[in-house]
């Protein structure tokens, strides 16, 4: 485990700040696409710096498979407050991380005035973080996220670019 128990920060504060950030970008940018792009870029930078930090006591990881394992079992639990539920793959370059209670979006409830699509903007920044962490560890991957029916169930799709990774 990367984080030490004495180093806790308020998760509520972080989530509320993230919510404010999303609503700020959606209102300040001309199109939703540009807001999304911007948020992903911010997440990417955060992810890069977090990866630099969290690999410090982990050791040197070289293989993309090891990087994926690090992200799944060490990086994710610390960044998103709980371990993800499953890691699956369908072929050589697609991996799915499922989190059935994704803390950053678990409090979202879609009302009659909003749609699941409105809620999906809350996944852009986390996607950027994961993508940035992969990039910092020298793995070229694209990360996308979708809700599975409700905003607390999230499926992150990791698409490895470049050379295919052999499955074990």
């Amino acid at each position: 485990m990367i984080g030490r128990s004495e180093r806790m920060c308020s998760a509520a504060c972080l989530e509320l700040m993230h919510a404010e950030m999303v609503s700020y970008f959606l209102s300040a940018r001309e199109t939703r696409e540009s807001a999304q792009k911007e948020m992903e870029r911010l997440g990417f930078r955060v992810g890069q710096k977090l990866a630099e930090r969290y690999t410090k006591d982990y050791g040197r990881i070289t293989e993309p498979m090891e990087v994926l394992r690090f992200i799944f079992s060490d990086f994710w639990p610390v960044v998103f407050s709980k371990p993800p539920d499953s890691l699956t793959t369908n072929n050589n370059s697609l991996y799915y991380i499922e989190d059935t209670d994704f803390r950053w979006t678990s409090k979202i409830s879609v009302t009659s005035r909003t749609t699941l699509e409105d809620a999906s903007y809350f996944l852009t920044f986390p996607c950027g973080i994961v993508k940035g962490a992969f990039a910092a560890l020298d793995v070229d991957a694209d990360v996308k996220a979708d809700f599975q029916e409700t905003p607390s169930r999230c499926l992150f799709t990791i698409i490895f670019k470049g050379k295919a990774i052999p499955t074990r």
Binding site: Y58, G59, R60, I61, T62, E63, M65, E66, F70
Partner: peptide, 14 residues
């Protein structure tokens, strides 16, 4: 060069 003991991929020494 990887450490000979690590046939299963494990983190390497920095």
């Amino acid at each position: 060069i990887r450490a000979p003991s690590s046939t299963v991929s494990t983190p390497q020494d920095m």
